[in-house]
């Protein structure tokens, strides 16, 4: 040894500190954005759930009042129920349709590229644009669907004006818009599957449906894992199409959590209430994604 152990320790520490600093320099821009636009808002949210006022007058500590208000507010409950029911309709539907289209795209020998572009077009539209498009298509007076209904001898259906139909209709519009995205996602997963496995399964005499259930679905587990979690996060934030189409109506049948949060700030100016509702949404999504992670974990 030419250097003492203490000297070695000191130099090693300095060396490691330098690599750590480099790493944080690479993480820096993201960590700053993360702190300012995610960490601070989340902390602010938590603090606000225990306070009132703040827009005009000084904020005041009110303990659990906001939480009590939120839980006892019937519209808050309705908004949560609407959001969950909407997600429960939209997510499985879009997944099944997208899976069928992805399987079909994976099966055809040519012509895939233009079909993929066509299927993706709805995904490229902002939700409000999709919403407006369907306002025409579904219009009770001059919409093409109701034209067909009349031609068949039925009474025109007011899709967005009916309390039982409005939420499913919005779900349907979001399915139309989301199908392209999930089709591409599943197709990407399918094309990455090892072909040899399928040849082997076929030689073993496994039929198409059996192959799909025993081979494709399990192999796509990582894709599904991402899809389920991402879809949950996105769909529980339902806002754009409700805002553009129904503004929560008719009779609050389409009020979503995000819409109610938006209203509580920009219509009622009740920050404490909106913050509590927001925090509830954060917790819901975290718990749900946690649960999904647990359910979809790799059991092997």
């Amino acid at each position: 040894m030419t250097l003492s152990p203490e000297e070695h320790r000191r130099l090693a520490k300095r060396y490691r500190r330098r690599t750590t600093l480099t790493a944080y320099a690479f993480l820096g821009p993201n960590l700053v954005a993360f702190a300012v636009f995610l960490l601070i808002p989340v902390v602010w949210l938590l603090v606000s759930t225990f306070r009132t006022g703040g827009v005009l007058g000084p904020a005041e500590f009110v303990g659990l009042d906001n939480w009590r208000d939120t839980f006892s507010d019937p519209l808050a409950r309705t908004s949560i129920r609407n959001t969950v029911v909407y997600s429960a309709m939209a997510i499985p539907t879009v997944f099944i349709i997208a899976m069928i289209l992805a399987l079909a795209l994976n099966a055809i020998p040519r012509g895939g590229a233009p079909i993929r572009v066509a299927l993706y077009l709805p995904t490229l539209q902002p939700a409000v644009v999709a919403a407006f498009i369907f306002t025409f298509v579904l219009h009770p007076d001059f919409g093409v669907i109701n034209y067909a209904v009349r031609w068949l001898g039925g009474d025109p259906i007011n899709f967005l004006g009916d309390t039982t139909l409005a939420l499913p209709t919005i779900a349907g519009i979001e399915v139309w818009r989301g199908t392209g995205f999930w089709t591409m996602m599943f197709l990407a997963g399918l094309t990455a599957l090892p072909g040899e496995l399928y040849h082997a399964a076929e030689l073993d005499g496994a039929g198409a449906i059996r192959r799909f259930i025993r081979l494709t679905l399990p192999l796509l587990r990582p894709t599904f894992y991402f899809a389920v979690i991402f879809a949950t996060i996105v769909n529980l934030q339902l806002f754009d199409s409700v805002f553009a189409l129904t503004d929560g109506g008719p009779v609050n049948s389409t009020v979503s959590v995000s819409l109610y949060i938006y209203r509580s700030l920009f219509l009622f100016g009740d920050i404490g209430f909106g913050a509590t509702l927001s925090f509830l949404l954060v917790i819901t999504v975290l718990l749900l994604t946690g649960l999904q992670t647990y359910l979809l974990r790799d059991r092997k």
Partner: peptide
């Protein structure tokens, strides 16, 4: 897993 639309209020103030 933090939904952005839950953060619109604090984001607005930030």
């Amino acid at each position: 897993a933090i939904p952005i639309s839950a953060l619109i209020i604090p984001m607005f103030f930030v």
